[in-house]
């Protein structure tokens, strides 16, 4: 049988899915054990027990200095920034995408600009963002917004232009004006695409969030990671990384569920 036609059985499927994780963990813990045997204070590859102790300190005990539960405190700060950034970016991206997808007259001015703007790496122009938005919460949220809005807008514009011409003609024959066309025909179709685009942009959004927190902050998951990195506290960093991964996965799952609930008809067309 050709390789391309071979499918794993149910048991093998599970085994193959778990295999990379098992290998990664095995490589990690054998490396960790080797280093800890050489130097029991080594901080680069902490053992599972050391990480568990760090989680205990961060999540379930008051911090000695500030009296806060730092993991939850950091998580709340980060999720607030991320939620705000994604919310603003989603609204702005949807509006821009519709405007430039629906109206050729407006598209002429907007589309080339979005194409260029989406290529600017926001981290490279940070000093300017500082001056314009200050150093507080606003600049962190704006870094996320500036980073992902143009890409969301371009994606939605593209999707809007893929709506069959016939639908526009038919709706107009039935008496729709520009406003009803946008509201009743385009918006529902694009909202569903918005959720898919947002899911794809979750990774970049986290990246921008953590970069913003690394630069100047007093709390946040990215802040903590970059702070404790100064003294190589990998026992704190690795659980934080796992926690971020879990949160990101949960957000992705949540967006998928919302999409499925609100636009059940879209599932078949999903990429």
């Amino acid at each position: 049988m050709r390789f391309i036609n071979r499918h794993p059985g149910r048991g093998n499927q599970l085994l193959l899915a778990l295999l990379p994780f098992i290998l990664l963990l095995a490589a990690y813990f054998s490396g960790s054990a080797a280093r800890l045997q050489d130097n029991s204070d080594d901080k680069l590859l902490p053992s599972a027990a050391q990480m568990a102790a760090a989680i205990d300190r961060a999540a379930f005990r008051e911090d000695r200095r500030s009296g806060e539960y730092i993991l939850w405190n950091d998580t709340a700060a980060s999720l607030a920034r991320l939620g705000m950034g994604l919310g603003i970016a989603a609204c702005a991206g949807l509006a821009l995408g519709i405007i430039s997808g629906a109206f050729p007259l407006l598209r002429a001015g907007l589309s080339p600009f979005l194409a260029v703007a989406s290529m600017i790496p926001p981290l490279a122009i940070l000093p300017i963002l500082f001056i314009v938005f200050g150093l507080d919460e606003l600049s962190k949220v704006m870094l996320i917004v500036i980073g992902i809005t143009p890409i969301l807008a371009r994606d939605l514009e593209q999707k809007a232009r893929e709506i069959p011409r016939e639908l526009f003609v038919k709706a107009q024959t039935l008496g729709a004006n520009s406003w009803t066309l946008v509201l009743r025909m385009m918006l529902p179709q694009l909202c569903c695409r918005l959720f898919i685009s947002l899911r794809l942009m979750l990774g970049p959004a986290w990246l921008f969030l953590i970069s913003a927190e690394a630069i100047s902050a007093t709390a946040g998951l990215g802040y903590r990671i970059f702070l404790v990195r100064r003294y190589l506290a990998m026992d704190t960093i690795l659980p934080y990384v796992a926690w971020i991964t879990l949160l990101a996965w949960l957000m992705d799952y949540l967006l998928r569920q919302i999409n499925r609930r609100c636009f059940p008809w879209s599932e078949g067309a999903e990429t």
Binding site: L126, P127, I131, G134, L135, I215, T218
Partner: peptide, 20 residues
């Protein structure tokens, strides 16, 4: 005082803003 962590590479740019 309130200590705000700022990376040394970005300190000069941060100082030029009104907040700092």
């Amino acid at each position: 005082v309130k200590v705000v962590n700022t990376s040394d590479a970005d300190l000069v740019a941060a100082y030029d803003t009104g907040n700092v």
